[in-house]
Design a protein around this nucleic acid. Structure first.
Length: 256
DNA sequence: ATGGCCTGCAACGCAGGA
């Protein structure tokens, strides 16, 4: 089972890229973030025609998540239980016995912003919920835009980013708390090229100069991680005209 | 790297992203 995550930065704009990519990459499951559209206009029919069922939770202008699957989805859930949040950032579904959790973790804006406080509280709620969710679903995959570069090697210029969101110590501590639950970073289970990133700023020719960050991740529970055969970042969609600023991250699982 | 872009909304200049 090939699973993937991709922040599309507007599904309306990126639908042609997505449909092409589904064809070429042939993933079985795709978690999308920043769909930026309400559920009544979600392109479920176009995706169904491409062979994918979908679950989605969107809102106008901001945020929005979806899970696409070639296999049946069940137990669809939106949001973090008990955490009141107007923003559509979480969607979970069970596919082939795997609990797939799609997250769009808040950006935080800057360390002195109230959005940063929201990010921290949000992450604490996520960690607490996942601890329970992993008990219920030993095969769990957490995919999404984490807005956290876990280590300095996940940032093109760590010195320039000191004191900024995506790399701050409290954010990284919460990423580590996810690892402490037993989750494994699928990408780091394998040898990877240096300076592997999943997001590049639209400005300053960030992609061409590879001034990026690795902030989109696939974490796998202890039962699932040993079944992971490969994980990679697919940079191809980032090279197209009018791309998303993020590019897909994939993991291949051999379910036993 | 110190700014430059992109998106959506709604009405052309914001907010928000990262």
């Amino acid at each position: 089972m090939k699973i993937a995550t991709w922040n599309v930065n507007s599904l309306k704009v990126r639908l042609p890229h997505l449909l092409d990519w589904l064809q070429s990459a042939a993933p079985d499951v795709v978690c999308l973030q920043e769909t930026k559209q309400t559920d009544d206009v979600f392109p479920a029919e176009a995706l169904r025609a491409a062979g994918y069922d979908s679950a989605f939770s969107g809102q106008k202008t901001y945020n929005g998540v979806a899970i696409l699957s070639r296999l049946p989805l069940s137990e669809v859930q939106t949001g973090i239980p008990g955490f009141v949040d107007e923003q559509k950032r979480v969607l979970a579904a069970t596919i082939e016995g795997v609990r797939v959790v799609c997250v769009y973790i808040p950006n935080g804006q800057s360390l002195d912003s109230d959005k940063y406080q929201y990010k921290m509280a949000w992450l604490d709620a996520l960690i607490a919920w996942l601890k329970d969710e992993m008990q219920r679903h030993p095969r769990l995959a957490l995919l999404g835009d984490y807005n956290i570069a876990p280590e300095d090697r996940d940032c093109h210029d760590p010195a320039a980013w000191v004191g900024q969101v995506l790399v701050s110590e409290p954010e990284r501590a919460r990423f580590q708390a996810l690892l402490d639950l037993g989750l494994k970073d699928a990408f780091r289970l394998f040898e990877q090229p240096d300076k592997s990133f999943s997001w590049w700023d639209y400005r300053m020719m960030g992609f061409r100069r590879n001034l990026g960050m690795r902030i989109d991740h696939i974490l796998l529970s202890p039962d699932l991680a040993p079944m992971c055969q490969a994980s990679e970042i697919d940079k191809a969609p980032r090279k197209l005209e009018r791309p998303s600023d993020h590019t897909p991250v994939l993991a291949t699982l051999r379910l036993e």
